[in-house]
């Protein structure tokens, strides 16, 4: 039994060491985390609203300094008409030029975890509205580095629990080993 465990530990140690030492490029870009919320459009003749309720409050508390928000509206504004866009009743912009896609910068302080987009227009066939929230991760002070002791303690507890469980599993395997 001992040499088997020794073999397993030795090979695992080598693989772990290799996986740390060998060069590897990141699997995903670490500079940006994005969330976007899309809603179907409406044909506006007066006022139309869309309410987004599922935004994480974290964006508006400690992440606000690293967060940018963009509103994308698709659907042509009819010629000679105009449309005004409001976020949570804050006036954002009045659009006049007819084009298929409008991308507007939204100040973070206009939004909250429940954000209502309101558009007033006499004639605008809006196909979709999309609120895109981006956070520039390197700008955010990482929470875990500030709470390193909690993370290390958690890991230690985890290792202890796994050690006890592993002993139980090994004991459970042993009778099978003897009959094999």
């Amino acid at each position: 039994m001992r040499h088997k465990i020794l073999l397993v530990v030795a090979v695992t140690a080598i693989i772990v060491a290799l996986s740390i030492v060998l060069p590897s490029k990141p699997d995903l870009p670490t500079n940006q985390g994005m969330t976007h919320f899309t809603r179907n459009g409406k044909n506006i003749n007066g006022t139309a609203t869309w309410t987004i309720t599922e935004i994480d409050p974290a964006y508006f508390s400690y992440l606000s300094n690293a967060t940018t928000i963009k509103l994308t509206i698709t659907g042509n504004l009819t010629n000679s008409q105009q449309g005004s866009v409001y976020i949570n009743n804050y006036f954002l912009e009045t659009l006049k030029v007819s084009q298929s896609v409008y991308v507007l910068n939204v100040p973070v302080e206009f939004c909250s975890s429940t954000t209502t987009i309101k558009i007033t227009s006499q004639e605008w066939d809006v196909k979709s509205v999309d609120l895109l929230i981006s956070v520039d991760i390197p700008q955010v002070p990482t929470w875990w580095k500030q709470n390193l002791w909690i993370i290390a303690l958690g890991l230690l507890v985890e290792i202890l629990i796994m050690g006890v469980s592993a002993r139980k599993v090994l004991k459970w395997i042993e009778p099978s080993e003897n009959t094999s």
Partner: peptide
């Protein structure tokens, strides 16, 4: 260490990242 699913493993990483770095639910 040398293989992974093209989108799912990065997703697991993303979940760890938003939890431990950004404290996002």
């Amino acid at each position: 260490p040398f293989f992974r699913h093209p989108s799912d493993v990065p997703t697991w990483k993303f979940l760890g990242e938003i939890t431990f770095n950004l404290r996002i639910n």
